[in-house]
Design a protein around this nucleic acid. Sequence first.
DNA 1: CTGTAGTTTCAGTAAAAACTGAAATGTTCG
DNA 2: CGAACATTTCAGTTTTTACTGAAACTACAG
Lengths: 177, 177
Amino acid sequence: MKLTPISERFILHWGEMGARWGVNRSVAQIHALLYLAGCPLAADEIAETLSVARSNVSTSLKELLAWRLVKVSHIMGDRRDHFETSGDVWELFKLIVEGRKQREVEPTLAVLGEFIASPDFAEEMPGVRQRIQETREFIRILTVWADEMLRQEPETLMKILKMGAKLHDFVRKKKEE
Amino acid sequence: MKLTPISERFILHWGEMGARWGVNRSVAQIHALLYLAGCPLAADEIAETLSVARSNVSTSLKELLAWRLVKVSHIMGDRRDHFETSGDVWELFKLIVEGRKQREVEPTLAVLGEFIASPDFAEEMPGVRQRIQETREFIRILTVWADEMLRQEPETLMKILKMGAKLHDFVRKKKEE
DNA sequence: CTGTAGTTTCAGTAAAAACTGAAATGTTCG
DNA sequence: CGAACATTTCAGTTTTTACTGAAACTACAG
């Protein structure tokens, strides 16, 4: 399948961005392709379109499946697996946040928790103790809050975000209660 | 300077996390060290403590300075530059978000804007057009909202975050207005 | 069964990123 | 000024990560 210049540039840019955020370039590109395609594609087609090895596509799709960003589907009369992703940006964003939370944030909280629980912790300088505890608390709050956000419907969420400007007032009101 | 086992593990973990988010491991480690140290350190001391080349520290500090995560300071009677970072997690988080916004999000918005403005855009399939536009809109809203958040005082912010659970009600109320 | 189409695995290779040490440059002080 | 100290630059090397292609495996159709 031949890409239009805009699709191609979109995919390349997305790959680049992925790379900057610690996502393998091919993985990000494949995801961008499926996103733009808007319909299930076979691994062969992906490999051909992006000019990468079939095996690379296989590995990358496995990664995307693990993140639940991509689902397998089938086309009548075609034995090959096909792959598709959601066309809803918010849905995708949620899956990514969820994935990073599980893979990076929660292990970090666990490690910080271990430090604090460790008998050695009491020996640390007060400043160090405090900063480690504050770091943990900060991450914990962010996580709880992210969970809260992820639970919302896309529509509700968009409203919350768009409402940003009003948040300050909201907080002021709450303080007065 | 010798690290305690907890400090060492904290720094190593932080380096690892940095790497997963596209930040150079040394850069993240140096930042973690300065964060725990809570006082200005000379580049030599950093190099020695982390067992990395002096030149590596120099490059990494330049990076951290560019992100405004680290400031140069001086100690009486010592000709060497010293470096320190904020001990306030929220402050640090803000700087990181700000940095990523400038380096990655804004360029992405610019690129997507170009696509949409391009004469070729009309030729794209309707689904593709829509998804590109929705992507841009999503990122734009996230950005505006992040700006809003970043403007808050740490204290206010913590309140907003802790209040997460109440957001849903807030939105419901707003809908009724 | 057996052949064919499809997929995955993995050892080896290629590419990218990080890091080092030596040399160059800059700075301060007597 | 010039010696001693401090920092930066950068070519070369090491390390890590990504990618490929061949082989192994799987599933299905005839």
